[in-house]
C-alpha cells in the first residue's frame, strides 16, 4: 500500500514539481521587484497552451529537429526515474553515477544537434556556447558526485544518497561542499544567472534560449517541460547533499525526508531567484571563473573525501 502511495507521490512530483518550481522562481523574482507577477502555475498553463498550438518549422530543418524533442523528453523522464533526487523515490537498481552523467551528456548532444539543424546563426552560436559551458561544468558535476560516492564506497547513487548511510558529523563539510558545488554547477548547466539570463530578450546574449528558437508549439512545450524537469532533478540532487549535511548535524526521522526533500528544492528555487535579482550577468569571457568556483567546491569535497577516506 505504502509503495503505491510512494509511486503516486513520485509521479505527481514528476508531473507538477517542475512547473511549480519554475513558478516559485518567477513569482519570487516578481515580488522582489515589487511586481505582482504571473500566477504560480503559469508555466503549466503555458505548456498546455503550447501543446494545443500548431507548429511552425523552418524549411531548412530536417527530421532531427523533430526527433530531438522526443529523445530529449524521454531521456529526461528516464533520468528522473533513475536518479535519487528525492529521498522517498522508490529506488531502481540501475542508478549508477556514470549512467546519470552519460544520460545528461546524451540530452545535451541531441539538443546541440537539433539547434544546428535549421542552420540559423543563433542556434549555431547557442550550441557553441552550450558546448563550451558543458565542457567546463561536467567535470565539476562528476567530481562532486564522485566525492560523495567515494565516501560511501559505491557508485550506486541510491546507496550513496540513502539517508541510512553512516553520517557522522565529520562528513558534514563533505556533503555541504558537494552540495554547493552541484548547485553552482547546475546554475551554469541550467543556463541561469549569472552565466545566462533566462528572461533576456536579447538574442545575441542567449545560450539555452538561442538553441530553442526554432521550436514552436508542442515541440517547444515538451522542451520547456524537459528543461524544467532537468532543473528540479539537478536541484534535487544538490538538495539531497544538503539534506545529508543536515542529517549529519541533526539526524531526523526518515518520514520528515519527504517534506524536507521537496522544501529544499523550493528553497534552492528561492535562492536562485535571489541570485537572479541581485546579480549582474557575467561577461561571457568571465563565465569560466564562475564555473571555477563550482569546480573548486567539488575539488575540495573530493579532497575531503579522499583524506577522510584514507584515515577512516
Amino acid at each position: 500500500m505504502s509503495t503505491i502511495l510512494l509511486w503516486l507521490l513520485t509521479f505527481s512530483c514528476l508531473l507538477f514539481l517542475p512547473s511549480l518550481t519554475i513558478g516559485i522562481i518567477r513569482k519570487t523574482k516578481a515580488r522582489l521587484q515589487n511586481r505582482v507577477g504571473a500566477p504560480l502555475w503559469q508555466h503549466l498553463f503555458d505548456t498546455i497552451k503550447l501543446l494545443r498550438k500548431s507548429e511552425t518549422v523552418s524549411e531548412n530543418s530536417s527530421w532531427i529537429l523533430r526527433v530531438n524533442t522526443v529523445i530529449n523528453i524521454s531521456i529526461m523522464i528516464t533520468l528522473a526515474f533513475l536518479t535519487p533526487w528525492l529521498s522517498f523515490k522508490p529506488a531502481t537498481s540501475a542508478d549508477d553515477l556514470f549512467l546519470l552523467i552519460y544520460l545528461f551528456a546524451a540530452i545535451r548532444f541531441f539538443a546541440i544537434l537539433s539547434s544546428l539543424d535549421p542552420g540559423s546563426a543563433f542556434g549555431a552560436f547557442g550550441a557553441s556556447r552550450e558546448a563550451t559551458l558543458s565542457v567546463l561544468v561536467e567535470p565539476a558535476i562528476i567530481l562532486a558526485l564522485s566525492a560523495v560516492a567515494l565516501s560511501a564506497h559505491t557508485s550506486n547513487l541510491s546507496l550513496v544518497f540513502a539517508l541510512t548511510a553512516n553520517t557522522p558529523i565529520s562528513q558534514a563539510p563533505l556533503w555541504l561542499l558537494a552540495g554547493a558545488g552541484l548547485f553552482l554547477s547546475s546554475l551554469v548547466e541550467l543556463s541561469r544567472m549569472p552565466v545566462d539570463d533566462p528572461t533576456t530578450h536579447l538574442e545575441l546574449t542567449m545560450v539555452h534560449e538561442a538553441m530553442m528558437l526554432e521550436n514552436s508549439g508542442p515541440n517547444l512545450a515538451l522542451l520547456e517541460f524537459s528543461s524544467a524537469l532537468r532543473l528540479v532533478v539537478l536541484y534535487g540532487l544538490s538538495g539531497q547533499c544538503f539534506l545529508h549535511a543536515l542529517h549529519c548535524i541533526w539526524p531526523f526521522a526518515s518520514a520528515a525526508g519527504i517534506l524536507l526533500s521537496i522544501s529544499i528544492i523550493f528553497a534552492l528555487a528561492v535562492v536562485t531567484s535571489l541570485i537572479e535579482t541581485v546579480s549582474v550577468r557575467l561577461k561571457w569571457t568571465r563565465a569560466p571563473e564562475f564555473v571555477a568556483y563550482g569546480l573548486t567546491m567539488s575539488l575540495l569535497a573530493l579532497l575531503v573525501a579522499l583524506v577522510t577516506g584514507v584515515s577512516s
Binding site: 523574482k29 522582489l32 521587484q33 515589487n34 511586481r35 544567472m193 549569472p194 539570463d197 528572461t199 533576456t200 536579447l202 546574449t205 537572479e276 535579482t277 541581485v278 546579480s279 549582474v280 550577468r281
Partner: peptide
C-alpha cells in the same frame, strides 16, 4: 535590463 540586473531595472523603471 541588458546587463541582466533585474532589481535595478525595476527600481529605475519606477
Amino acid at each position: 535590463v541588458d546587463l541582466g540586473w533585474s532589481w535595478l531595472a525595476a527600481n529605475l523603471s519606477r
